[in-house]
Amino acid sequence: MENVTVNFIENKDKKTKPDADKIAFGKHYSDHMFVMDFQADKGWYDPRIVPYEPITLDPAAMIFHYGQTVFEGLKAYRTPSDRILLFRPEKNFRRLNLSSDRLSIPAIDEDLALSYLKQLLEVEKEWVPKAEGNSLYIRPFIIATEPNLSLAPSKTYQFMIILSPVGSYYKEGIQPVRIHVEDEYTRAVRGGTGTAKTAGNYAAAYKAQERATKEGYSQVLWLDGVEKKYIEEVGSMNVFFKVNGEIITPELNGSILEGITRMSIIEVLKDWGVPVTERKLSLEELYEAHEQGQLEEAFGTGTAAVISPVGELYWGEKKIKINNGEIGDLSKRLYDTLTGIQTGKIEDTYHWTIELNS
């Protein structure tokens, strides 16, 4: 479809862009943002690109009281030939709508949302970093804005997109991380909001992450919320294990977020002819595979890191060391392939990337 031009108010007070080697995740923001409003009797209306600035909400706005909000995360990459690429952005807007449906938030037009994002990026293209490994993080989100303390879905919303330059996730090379198996707290349960990308899911994970960090672990391995037996996610990422040549990842069971990177990894593995299975995987089964010398690799997948290799799992008094604490060959190959496609360094035979000016 053709682009629908949005209203544009230029920010005259331009910011100084951060040094390439000093960019911290989520600390710097571009000069402009996208905003669009919703009213029950009007639908979504008034799409606009405006200066990045604080937003003003009534203290009774329902986002503050009932947590009715969803968000997404994706990136824009600058190629060696100075093109700007997006990686499967249509999947992010599709998932945003799926999250919205779970939280009774009205859907946005996914094609229009992508058009709005591309127009924002055209205005802010100088914010897409040029340094190797850096990128522009994109955060679309929707919040409930109606000032009403009644326990019911809001009748008004705002959809916004903000942009943040981010540095290389692995500044000193990919280092496998140590993971604590969480057996007390629960990330999500089937029928809850685990399949939605909503704020409360992440705040609910803080307590377990605080404890893991205090004990010297980088992340938490989440188990199912009913039996505390089956593996679900690692931190805020989907998780994969290579067992005796086969790649196993927890099946989407109603509590696991369907990651765009997860989806892409599975497609690549199948294309390579690597056996990949989506199914229930208990920690006990994984431990037995480790004891038999069959647990070969483990890694998380997500937008920020793409691939995050796991070197050790700590389960009660048991320590599961994986691949001598080093990144596995398959994990490295997957990382190089996906980042190569994202940054235009290798041919995109899957047609996953969208060029900004296309």
Results as ranks from 00 to 15, higher is better:
V123S: 08
E124W: 11
K125V: 00
E126A: 13
E126T: 15
V128Q: 07
P129A: 13
K130C: 07
A131T: 04
E132S: 12
E132R: 14
G133W: 10
G133I: 06
N134D: 14
N134R: 11
N134G: 10
L136D: 07
L136M: 04
R139F: 06
I142W: 09
I142A: 09
I142G: 01
I142S: 01
I143G: 06
I143M: 11
T145D: 12
T145K: 14
T145C: 13
N148H: 03
N148G: 02
L149W: 10
S150Q: 14
S150A: 13
A152K: 14
A152C: 10
P153D: 05
P153K: 11
S154P: 03
K155P: 03
T156P: 03
T156I: 08
T156E: 15
T156R: 15
Y157Q: 04
Y157L: 10
Y157S: 03
Q158K: 15
I161R: 09
I161A: 07
I162S: 06
L163D: 03
S164L: 04
P165D: 07
V166L: 06
V166Y: 03
S168V: 07
S168Y: 01
Y169T: 11
Y170L: 03
Y170G: 04
Y170C: 00
K171N: 09
E172Q: 14
E172W: 10
G173C: 05
G173V: 11
Q175K: 15
P176I: 12
P176V: 07
R178G: 03
R178P: 02
R178S: 14
I179L: 11
I179F: 09
H180F: 13
V181I: 12
V181R: 07
E182M: 04
E182C: 00
D183Q: 10
D183G: 03
D183I: 03
E184R: 12
Y185A: 06
Y185T: 02
Y185E: 02
Y185G: 02
T186V: 15
T186W: 09
R187F: 05
R187W: 08
A188S: 10
G191A: 09
G194Q: 02
G194N: 06
T195G: 04
A196V: 03
A196E: 04
A196L: 03
K197W: 01
K197G: 00
T198H: 06
A199L: 04
G200K: 04
G200A: 04
N201G: 01
Y202Q: 00
Y202V: 01
A203Y: 01
A203S: 08
A203N: 00
A203K: 02
A204N: 08
A205R: 02
A205F: 00
A205M: 10
K207V: 11
A208H: 00
A208P: 01
A208Q: 01
R211V: 14
R211F: 09
R211K: 15
R211G: 02
A212T: 08
A212M: 06
A212D: 05
K214Q: 14
K214H: 09
K214T: 06
E215A: 14
G216T: 03
